Simulated scan of single mutants.
Amino acid sequence: MKWMGLGGLATIGGASVAAKANASNHYYTGPESDHFDGTLFFNPDGHEPKGFRDLLRWQFGGGKARWPAERESPFAAAKPEPRVDGDRLVVTMVGHATLLVQTAGLNILTDPVWSPRASPVGFAGPKRITPPGVAFDDLPPIDLVLLSHNHYDHLDIATLRRLHQAHDPQIITPLGNDTIVHREIAAMRVAAHDWGETVRFRDVAVDLEPAHHWSARGAGDRRMALWSAFVVSSQGGKIYVVGDTGFHGGRNYRAAAEKHGGFRLAILPIGAYEPRWFMEHQHQNPREAVEGMRLANAAYAAGHHWGVFRLTDEPVDEPRDHLQAALEAQGVGRERFRAMQPGEAWDVPMAP
């Protein structure tokens, strides 16, 4: 277990929604929508996360595979290029959900975590078993951070503070997460927006799109901040970035394909999915990730969210192995969908 639409065009620094007094939400006030009831966010026609009784059933029910204390990546730590210009697209795996995306002269990080634990404290919680695939000091200048939601394996204040001090990047994140960041790093540049909004940043457009997930930093703030996927559109094509999601019958993948027409690359989670009775609605498995790639009409896919932090029950390498089996079963070439590992860099081909 993790430690604890509105449409239109928005620009950096602009307000996303009109304010509405609501003392019961710590992070966000605004009007009701098809995924916000005036107090809490929710998945339309979807599922809420399991409750405390189910959590205890899972935690004390057995079935957890043993993970090694350390795991070496087959790739040496990468030293990325300072910039990747034009329509080239290079993706480098740092670890878990943290990837460096370089295209159109921009350096973009997804859900950056360099801390040794995905946890609110330094002495407990899921521990990193593989070092980051890019040393923090070897990062190129970071322009933009896509922050998908507030779980500790995706929103890490210590890392964001280091990025602010060293790079001063712009953050784009769904509603409410700006409050969390600004309470700790008041001067960080954070733009919070709703599903269906488009944000312009230099020569790219970033669309915030639905994902089937949830949010919490502790016991008293469940679903008070929004979660999302992103679509980055540049001269080199479109990139679909999904931090965490349940498959949800493929609903969001179909909608993304219908709206955007398809993608050069989809960055998709493939791990943290067992036991299915507990995780199914929040974390897709590798078979569902392959189906999602196909439904979204993505030419290539990069698999993440596996092999670094032990969050759930499956063996450490099972997501990679099950991904390969799913690709074969669904007739998708292995070269099109990589289960990326720390230090691995991929010069992604243009979509055929």
Score class of each variant (00 low, 15 high):
Gly196Asn: 03
Val190Ala: 02
Arg202Cys: 10
Asp207Tyr: 06
Val190Gln: 00
Gly176Val: 07
Glu184Asp: 12
Ala192Gln: 08
Leu208Phe: 10
Glu184Gln: 14
Ala211Pro: 12
Asn177Pro: 01
Asp203Arg: 12
Thr179Ser: 12
Asp207Val: 03
Thr179Val: 14
Ile180Val: 15
Arg183Thr: 11
Asp194Cys: 07
Ile180Glu: 06
Ala186Ile: 13
Ile180Arg: 02
Ala186Gly: 07
Arg189Lys: 15
Thr198Leu: 08
Glu209Val: 15
Ala211Met: 12
Phe201Gly: 05
Arg200Asp: 14
Val181Cys: 12
Ala205Phe: 11
Asp194His: 08
Gly196Trp: 06
Val204Thr: 08
Glu209His: 06
Val206Cys: 00
Val206Thr: 05
Asp203His: 09
Asp207Arg: 10
Val199Trp: 03
Arg183Met: 09
Ala192Lys: 01
Thr179Glu: 13
Arg189Ile: 11
Asp178Arg: 11
Glu209Tyr: 10
Arg202Glu: 15
Asp207Phe: 08
Met188Tyr: 05
Val204Trp: 03
Ala192Asp: 14
Ala186Asn: 07
Asp194Ile: 03
Val204Leu: 10
Phe201Ile: 06
Ala211Gln: 12
Ala211Thr: 15
Asp178Tyr: 04
Ile185Ala: 01
Ala205Pro: 02
Ile180Trp: 03
His193Ile: 01
Trp195Leu: 06
Val204Met: 05
Gly176Thr: 08
Thr198His: 11
Ile185Glu: 02
Val181Pro: 09
Val204Gln: 04
Leu175His: 01
Asp178Cys: 02
Val181Ser: 11
Met188Glu: 05
Val199His: 06
Phe201Leu: 07
Arg200Phe: 07
Arg189Tyr: 01
Asp194Gly: 07
Asp203Trp: 00
Leu175Tyr: 04
Trp195Phe: 09
Glu209Ala: 13
Arg202Ile: 12
Thr173Asp: 09
Val199Glu: 04
